[in-house]
Design a protein around this nucleic acid. Structure first.
Lengths: 241, 241
DNA sequence: TGCTATTTGTGCGTATGTATT
DNA sequence: AAATACATACGCACAAATAGC
């Protein structure tokens, strides 16, 4: 029953402990592959396994030709109110950009199901990318049933704001009655890793928000957020009684 | 400037596409290391890199002696209301257990800072583990200032419920006025991976909830949730006008 | 029970490419 | 141009878990 812990786990956990203890601080360089070989008397591949494990845990980032460095979760705090409005907070100094691409497309099976449409069907689509300091932080795919509502043209506001959607529908006489939200997290796909330049070991937070007008779903937002940059924060007042 | 895509990325993305297309379904076995060698004319280590990449993306799980299988995100839907109450939904059939360990400990620097205490200080601690079908799904560390409130002894309710905390403080004359929540996601630590038996490529969702009575923080909950099992869901009614 | 074949896990050695300094 | 460091890749050996006989 002797369960021996593999060397690459032992070494990785030791470095991990140094990071947790503050002996290695964000930005610090950790020993390179050759150094690990000598320090712990392990082979090159095991040294690589150590670094790979730490990378996967999101503790370090590696740069070819330079080395591996303790990761920096440089969080940009955001505020969510009432499960609806997402707006940045405490980061007015950094330059934010928001790009919006509008189109009208055939609904995929998936989207048709979510919007309760029978195929084939056309829907309006908005692809929004929120960039902060040249880093894409958040990508939103927003789909709406084709009604007579004005198009989505408010790049100055945050696309995650449900209030905007609600107001726009209200302006054409469609009252959004409920907003449902599913929040989860997963590892990014290859495509997302490429698009958002996400380092290894960084998950994405996903929010799927569905707007209902009565029983019919009228709009759906799929929000994908880099978890190492964005913190979803909320504050709620409690009434006595 | 020729940027060649590495073989292990090419092969992994091809299998990833098969999973996305539904050609490989959850539970299906993917080609083994030796098979990948032959199929794509690659070496053993590259075949391993392919599998490692897919594992890291949370798309497959590997079992020694059996093979690698398409992962199954077997979500247990949960409901969050008003950012306070977390309760399970749609899963009354599965057997849930909740273990609670109560203690009184010295506050760590971290906790002391969050609760605005000056060291040394004693705090009451509750370590709660929510298990579902023998799988630990959620671990909560809950700290409270030492007041005269009754101890936390309600294993029948979900420890994430802020209302419970609020009521208990109210019963001793301390009115909780605000609840702050920070939600994020990250890869699990080695310890968490071991404790909760989390497979590779599965992040955890973290919720840090702080209860304030006026300006003083009185309780803090640190909730850690397996992201492949739990979905945080909310529903909100919109009032017209 | 024991044996064997299969499959992944761990580990070693080596060579070459590419980015950085 | 040279040194350094990570990235990709090949080949090999043995351990450990699994499944079938």
């Amino acid at each position: 029953m002797m369960s021996v812990t593999p060397m690459y786990v032992v070494v990785a956990d030791r470095i991990s402990a140094q990071i947790a203890a503050g002996e290695l601080r964000p930005g610090d360089r950790i020993p390179g592959e050759r150094e690990l070989e000598e320090l712990y008397k392990i082979s090159r591949n095991v040294a690589r396994a150590v670094i790979s494990r730490l990378r996967q845990q999101g503790l370090i980032v590696s740069r070819q030709g330079k080395g591996s460095f303790v990761a920096n979760r440089d969080l940009i705090r955001r505020l969510v109110r009432n499960g609806q409005e997402f707006r940045p907070a405490d980061n007015t100094e950094v330059d934010q950009t928001l790009t919006v691409e509008l189109s009208e497309v055939d609904a995929s099976n998936d989207i048709a199901w979510c919007l309760d449409l029978s195929l084939p069907a056309r829907v309006s689509k908005a692809l929004m990318t929120w960039t902060i300091g040249n880093e894409p932080i958040e990508v939103t795919e927003h789909y709406e049933r084709l009604l007579d509502q004005p198009p989505i043209t408010r790049p100055e506001t945050n696309p995650m704001n449900a209030p905007d959607v609600i107001k726009r529908f209200a302006s054409i006489g469609t009252q959004v009655t409920t907003v449902e939200e599913d929040t989860s997290a997963r590892m990014p796909t290859s495509e997302e890793t490429h698009q958002m330049a996400i380092p290894q070991g960084v998950p994405v937070i996903t929010v799927e928000r569905t707007h209902h007008a009565g029983d019919t779903p009228v709009a759906i937002s799929r929000i994908t957020i880099r978890a190492d940059r964005v913190l979803i924060s909320s504050k709620q007042d409690i009434s006595a009684g």
